[in-house]
Amino acid sequence: MTTFKLIINGKTLKGEITIEAVDAAEAEKIFKQYANDNGIDGEWTYDDATKTFTVTE
């Protein structure tokens, strides 16, 4: 398992979430479901060097 981080730069929600996932594809699926569940819709980026996803509304 690898640790992945999501940085949320939303209009109403900001913060960071860290999860353990098998790979970046699994982490992205989990993070996008979390964002969808919380009404966050924005532009996604991923930095493989730091294993960090960012979503900006």
Rank of each mutant, 00 (worst) to 15 (best):
M1T: 10
T2L: 11
T2M: 12
T2A: 13
T3Y: 15
T3N: 09
F4C: 01
F4W: 06
F4D: 00
F4Q: 00
K5N: 02
K5I: 06
K5H: 12
L6P: 00
L6Q: 00
L6E: 00
L6Y: 02
I7E: 06
I7T: 05
I7H: 08
I8S: 04
N9E: 06
N9R: 10
G10R: 06
K11V: 06
K11G: 07
T12R: 02
T12C: 06
L13N: 08
L13T: 14
L13V: 05
L13M: 12
K14N: 13
K14L: 14
K14H: 14
G15E: 06
G15S: 12
G15D: 05
E16L: 09
I17N: 14
I17R: 04
I17P: 02
I17D: 02
T18Y: 12
T18R: 08
I19T: 10
I19Q: 05
E20F: 03
E20P: 03
A21T: 04
A21K: 08
V22K: 03
D23L: 03
D23Y: 12
D23R: 02
D23E: 11
D23F: 09
D23C: 02
A24K: 12
A24V: 14
A25Y: 15
A25D: 11
E26T: 09
A27W: 00
A27Q: 00
E28Y: 12
E28H: 12
E28C: 03
K29F: 03
K29C: 02
K29W: 04
K29T: 06
K29M: 11
I30D: 05
I30N: 04
I30S: 08
I30W: 13
I30H: 15
F31W: 13
F31M: 04
F31T: 03
K32L: 14
K32N: 05
K32M: 04
Q33N: 02
Q33W: 05
Q33C: 03
Q33D: 03
Q33I: 14
Y34R: 10
Y34K: 13
Y34D: 01
A35K: 05
A35H: 01
N36I: 11
N36P: 02
D37H: 09
D37S: 15
N38F: 08
N38P: 01
N38Y: 13
G39W: 07
G39Q: 15
G39Y: 12
G39D: 03
I40N: 12
I40C: 01
D41Y: 12
D41C: 07
G42K: 01
G42S: 04
G42I: 11
G42H: 10
E43Q: 07
E43H: 10
E43D: 08
E43L: 15
W44Q: 01
W44Y: 04
W44G: 00
T45P: 00
Y46I: 07
Y46N: 01
Y46H: 05
D47T: 04
D48I: 05
D48W: 05
D48M: 09
D48V: 06
D48L: 07
D48C: 14
A49C: 02
A49T: 08
A49D: 13
A49N: 09
T50W: 07
T50G: 09
T52R: 11
T52C: 01
T52F: 15
F53K: 00
F53P: 00
T54Q: 04
T54Y: 12
T54G: 06
V55R: 00
V55I: 10
V55D: 00
T56C: 03
T56K: 12
T56L: 14
E57S: 06
E57Q: 15
E57R: 09
